[in-house]
Structures are given as C-alpha cells and as structure tokens.
Design a protein around this nucleic acid. Structure first.
Lengths: 227, 227
DNA sequence: ACAAAAGTGTTGAAGATACACCCATGA
DNA sequence: TCATGGGTGTATCTTCAACACTTTTGT
C-alpha cells in the first residue's frame, strides 16, 4: 500500500454527457447505490487509474457507466473545493461529451443504473454536480456559436430542420428558418446528399452531412460561425 | 504518514503569469534549483495543500514564487499525462494570471530566482510547460476579444494608445487606430478622466479608466466586444 | 523647424435582420 | 382536403473596413 509524506487528494473524472432526441437536450445521469447520496442522481465518473491519461479515464467512465464509445469529449474544468465530497478530499476533472442521436437511440437504455434526463427537468444532483452541469451548459452554448460541435449531437446524415432544432434547444431561443439556412449553407461545411426523408406526413426533407474537409478549409480561411 | 489503498497522483498548480510593459507581452518564469531540469526555466507552481482550494494554491504560488498579490486569475486547463513529470505522477491544474503594468513595475525584480521574459523570446521551458504556455496564450487571445480582461494588464488609468498597443501585443497584429477608438469608446466601458500625460515630446494623451459598472450594464445589454 | 504620438469622419461594402407564402406528403 | 413541416428571396438596416491629415508638445 502506497504511503506518502503528505496527505493527497484523490483524483477523479466526471462526465457531463449530452444527447439530443430531436427536440430537447438530454443529459445522462447515474443513480448512486453507495453512500454518500444513496439514491440521488449524479454525473457518471470514475477514479483516475495509475498511468492513465485524464481523457482516457473520462472515456472509460463513458463506456463503463454509460455504455458509450467514441464520443466527442473535451475537458471542461477542474473542481477542487476541499469539502465537495463529504468522505474525503476528491478533486474532479470534469469533461463533457456529446453523443449523436443515432448512438443515443441505439443505447435507448444506456447502462443499468443510468438514465437520460431532459436537461430542463433533471433531478437534483449529488455533490457539486449541479455546478459542473451549469458550467458544461455554458460551455456548450458558447462553443456551439463558433465551432461546429453541434454536429456531434446529430446522426451522420440529418436535415436542416433537425440541425436548427438542435441549435434552438442548446441556445434556448427560436431562430429564423431562412436566415439559419442561409448562414449555415454559406459556410460550405454541409454536403447535400441525394437522399430525402421518407414516410413523414409532410414534404420530405433533404439530407445533409457535415463535411469536415470543407470545415478545415473554412477554419483556415478565417472562421466565422455565429449562428 | 498517510497511506492509501491505491497509488495517488500528486496534485500541483502552475501559473502562467502575464505582464505588459507597454510594448511587449511578458511571462514570469522561475529558474529551477532542484532536479529535475536544474537550471531550466519553468512556470511558477506549487503543490496543493490539504484543505486548500485550487485557486488559493494558485494565489499562494503567485505570492511566494513571484511576490505578487491580487492578480486577475482564472483556471486554464488540467494537465495530467502520466509521464509529464519524470519523478512521479503529478497532475497539474494550470491557471493564468494578469498583472497590471503598475504592479509589474513596482515588482521590477519579482522574487529571487524569478524573472520576466518577453513571450516571443522566452527560453525553453521545463516539463510540459511549453504546452501550458501555448494553451494560455490561445486563451488570452481568444478571451481578450470578447471580454475586457485586457484592462487587467494596464494601470488603473491609461491612454487609448496604451490600450491599443496592448491589444496589438496580445493579438500579434496591428489595429486601425480610428476604428479601435471608435469601437472601444462605443462600448461605454471607458471613463474619460480630467487628466493627460505629461512630459512626452509630443501631444499629451487623455487618460481613461475602466468603468466596471458600465461594463456590467453593457454585458446585460447583450455583450459585444470584438476588437 | 522637426520629430513623435494624439486625435478626428466619411464612405462603400458586407453582413444581419425581418418577414410570408407555396410545396410535397400521409392521413 | 387538411395538417404538417420543408423550402425559398428581398428590402432595409446595421456594422465593419479602409483610409489621411491636423494638433500638441519637447527638443
């Protein structure tokens, strides 16, 4: 058993995992089965292993707690208030992840003890996880305005209507349809596919996909997203 | 001596401290006196104490290593690659700080073993501190565009010329004088003082100060800085 | 008188906003 | 035929970029 000259805080990662069902933004939570906060909902997290990168630990939490692989993942902020965990001092490096709708649907029931909640009607969270979620939401809202991370939440092919609904769900405000289309198409980062939606009782919608090559060019050319 | 079931990484904070001398952006570095990297320059940092907030630790590093108090301080990113320190695993929560010119000058010689370097001609840094500095610079450049953090690097009263030089130093690009003045004055966050520069062999410049009340109003009104 | 930075407006281009109707489909 | 979301263009306003000369001071 390892011994140190001074006390050391434990290190953990916690993940704010966002998903989109086409209408509202969801977050994945796990229900606690051990003290403290038994029965309460919390962000999925895990302790950092020896010789493991922070991001690897977050990916591991994503997979083991939520059954999800290969999500967009980005470090958010590190929470280290001495009493944030009543047991002992645990410093948590928070990450946020975006799960595309198709994977979201395939994992309809994610992992035992975990569940998706609409962000707007989530339950109270254990520890300081409310603060973490708040920071994650701010970051998501800020970032979606200048970087195309929204696409991470949609399936590979999607319609402009879905894309707009996603932006509206994240930003919490309605957007003008014509202006939205104009701007998003003007960037050139969308590729129009030869395929349309089927079976809906209204006019079929064109499918598009995100063109990451064009996006790179677009970034080099000076960037400008501002939806 | 504390003993744990599993090995624990040590936790430290490192600070990227920026200062501005009126012409170029500087960063404060300390020279290492103990292995590893003896003699190399590094970012000032310290281990996290028991029951100490992360931000408090960063403030403590600022004061003990650099002799500076009351700086603007913001968490940057957490660096946790398992081999980033050759001795043992140390996870570092990086902060960046902005020091105003007047304090910068008062501390002309900061603390023994520490020195200011122009960012552009800095020496190579120990550990992964190059990466940390790079991330800090990106953050500073990004943030100065939409938040008035630049004022933290200037004395309480300053001229528009100084402000513009600062922005040019951070962004690394010249700005149009008239447009810069127009935009910055249009925000209303500058208060014009009844005082002008003296003793320079050219026309005296008006002093201004940052009006944080007006800034709050400005933020609520919708924010828009984009220099 | 000259050097050096301060200060000051206008114009044209581009981008943002506001806004209303027809289309294709399934029920 | 009706309900539903998909799809389209223009006119106006605001914002951004480009640009050159006069002013004040110290030497």
């Amino acid at each position: 058993m390892p011994t140190y000259d001074y006390p050391r805080a434990a290190l953990a990662v916690d993940c704010v995992i966002f998903g989109f069902d086409g209408k509202v933004l969801h977050v994945l939570l796990t229900q606690r089965t051990t003290p403290p906060f038994v029965g309460a909902w919390a962000l999925p997290g895990t302790y950092l292993h020896e010789n493991e990168n922070l991001e690897s630990a977050a990916l591991r939490a994503l997979e083991s707690k939520a059954g999800l692989k290969n999500a967009f993942l980005e470090q958010l902020y590190t929470f280290g208030a001495p009493t944030r965990d009543p047991r002992e001092r645990i410093v948590s490096v928070a990450y946020y992840a975006l799960i595309s709708t198709d994977r979201w649907q395939r994992t309809g029931k994610p992992a035992p003890g975990a569940a998706w909640f609409p962000v707007a009607t989530r339950p109270d969270l254990a520890f300081d996880h409310e603060s973490i979620l708040t920071v994650a939401l701010e970051r998501l809202r800020a970032k979606v305005r200048y970087a195309p991370i929204g696409f991470e939440l949609l399936p590979a092919k999607f319609t402009l209507g879905q894309l707009q609904s996603l932006y509206e769900a994240i930003l919490g405000a309605p957007l003008d349809k014509r202006n939205f289309r104009k701007k998003i198409l003007a960037t050139g980062i969308l590729e129009r596919l030869d395929e349309r939606t089927q079976g809906a009782s209204h006019r079929p919608a064109q499918f598009y996909r995100f063109d990451s090559k064009a996006y790179k060019k677009f970034c080099q050319a000076g960037f400008n997203f501002e939806v």
